[in-house]
């Protein structure tokens, strides 16, 4: 860990300005990912702006019939919220499928969106990694890639976005609300929030320097049966090999998003339109153009099988 300076922000604008004004500055909320990465010097911020005192810890109704989730609402509180459990069960289930109770107590809503990949080569500073050190190459390509991405990856990076909660948020068409250092606010559709790696895997989201997430809003509930099927090697405390978030309506239509396969939660609207035709039709479309490695090619049939299990449950 490199030495750094630290401040606690009093208001959102001051926080955004504090980060924008100093090269190497970063926000910190729960710190469940950032501190680990700082210890091994994958992250080397020079200055931390702690946002945990900001007034973003509420879950509120919106005039449109949806909910606004404050950026600092903990994963535990969000998953346990009665409105979320009733109307957005897929979100609650996705959250409790991730991490551990201790981590969820500390992890924030915004931080979850910003967590970094768990590619083992990203974590080992002796290895080449375009994400960690742009232009250095990618040791994961040709290396151990069982956990890594099968679609939306690039010649520069084959890492995945590791989270569970954002897969459900993508399914629910969430909006990510932000404020920038000039005080300008915007609402970013979650579909646009995470970037594909392309030639710049170090750029993971569309956030501008200093732009601070203030809330995540969900549109009005969409009904249907909610599923989060997470497949992993052990029963808890592991990242997904493949996960499936789905809302299935009584007529067999619905929405599907996949986790553990791509640089972002992977939802292809044209694919989910094929849900009535069965899992194989959906995944054939959703994963068209996939570029798996020998190690992770199993993720494609696994995605189909996981979705098939969801569809079967929805009919039961």
């Amino acid at each position: 860990m490199k030495a750094f300076t630290y401040e606690r922000a009093k208001d959102p604008l001051a926080a955004a300005r504090a980060v924008a004004g100093r090269p190497g500055a970063k926000f910190i909320a729960g710190g469940t990912n950032l501190l680990d990465l700082m210890k091994i010097e994958v992250e080397v911020p020079t200055h931390l702006v702690d946002v945990q005192d900001l007034p973003f810890d509420k879950i509120e109704q919106t005039p449109q019939g949806g909910v606004r989730i404050g950026a600092l609402v903990t994963n535990t509180d969000l998953a346990a919220d009665p409105r979320i459990r009733r109307d957005y069960a897929v979100l609650s289930r996705a959250i409790v499928a991730g991490a551990s109770g201790q981590l969820r107590n500390k992890a924030s809503t915004a931080g979850n969106l910003l967590q970094r990949t768990r590619c083992p080569y990203f974590y080992d500073t002796n290895m080449a990694c375009n994400k960690r050190k742009p232009g250095s190459g990618c040791a994961a390509i040709g290396g151990f890639s069982r956990q890594l991405g099968v679609i939306g990856v690039s010649k520069s990076c084959i890492a995945t976005f590791p989270g569970d909660m954002p897969v459900a948020l993508r399914l629910l068409d969430a909006l990510v609300e932000t404020v920038d250092p000039q005080g300008k606010t915007r609402a970013i559709p979650i579909a646009d929030f995470h970037r594909l790696w392309g030639d710049h895997p170090e750029m993971e989201t569309v956030l501008a320097p200093g732009e601070l997430i203030t809330a995540v809003t969900l549109p009005a509930p969409i009904g249907g049966k909610h599923y989060y099927e997470k497949v992993r090697d052990r029963a808890s405390y592991a990242f997904a090999l493949v996960s499936v978030a789905a809302v299935i309506q009584p007529d067999g239509s619905g929405r599907v998003a996949f986790g553990g396969v791509a640089p972002k939660p992977w939802r292809v609207e044209a694919a989910e339109a094929l849900l009535p035709q069965g899992a194989a039709a959906v995944t054939a479309k959703a994963f068209a153009g996939a570029t798996p490695s020998k190690d992770n090619a199993f993720k494609l049939p696994l995605a189909t099988r996981a979705l098939a299990s969801v569809i079967a449950q929805s009919k039961a």
Binding site: P120, Y121, A139, F144, R146, D233, R234, S236, Y237
Partner: peptide, 30 residues
């Protein structure tokens, strides 16, 4: 039986999954 394996990167000669997140051992739920 189900999960433990130090994965060898045969190009660089090391165990790639060298932490407890990636070298999985059973948790209570298993």
């Amino acid at each position: 039986a189900l999960m433990e394996e130090l994965v060898v990167d045969k190009r660089f000669g090391f165990f790639v999954n060298h932490d407890l997140a990636s070298y999985e051992v059973p948790v209570h739920a298993d």
